[in-house]
């Protein structure tokens, strides 16, 4: 099964936390780091390490923004949106094949 191989070989989105981050970002485009922490229930260090992987893959951009005070914001890139969508379609194809 070609799709299954492709699915398991994606080390960036193959991780459920990183997939959850991308799914949360997709309709929102930009989210504050503190909001992601709250939604996912992770420790700051853990979330940061997952975000670094996503940033290195070019799926997200990490920026400093000013809301009530300087904050870290996470923004999905066009590549990130495209790859997440591709991964979801692949997942659906695999599920339909079972």
């Amino acid at each position: 099964m070609k799709q299954l191989k492709e699915l398991t070989s994606n080390h960036v989105l193959g991780n459920p936390i990183r997939l959850a981050i991308m799914l949360y970002l997709l309709p929102r485009a930009r989210v504050l780091f503190k909001d992601l922490l709250e939604v996912l229930g992770l420790t700051p260090g853990n979330l940061d390490s997952h975000l670094r992987v996503l940033e290195k893959a070019g799926y997200v951009k990490i920026k400093k923004v000013f809301s009530d005070r300087p904050r870290t914001a996470v923004e999905i890139t066009q590549k990130g949106a495209q790859e997440t969508g591709k991964y979801l379609r692949l997942l659906r194809e695999v599920l339909n094949g079972i």
């Binding site: 997709l26 999905i76 066009q78 949106a81 495209q82 969508g85 591709k86 379609r89």
Partner: peptide, 16 residues
Amino acid sequence: GKRLEALFRSQGRVEE
């Protein structure tokens, strides 16, 4: 438009 483009891209429906 930027947000819409990301959503369309996630569905594989838009070119750069």
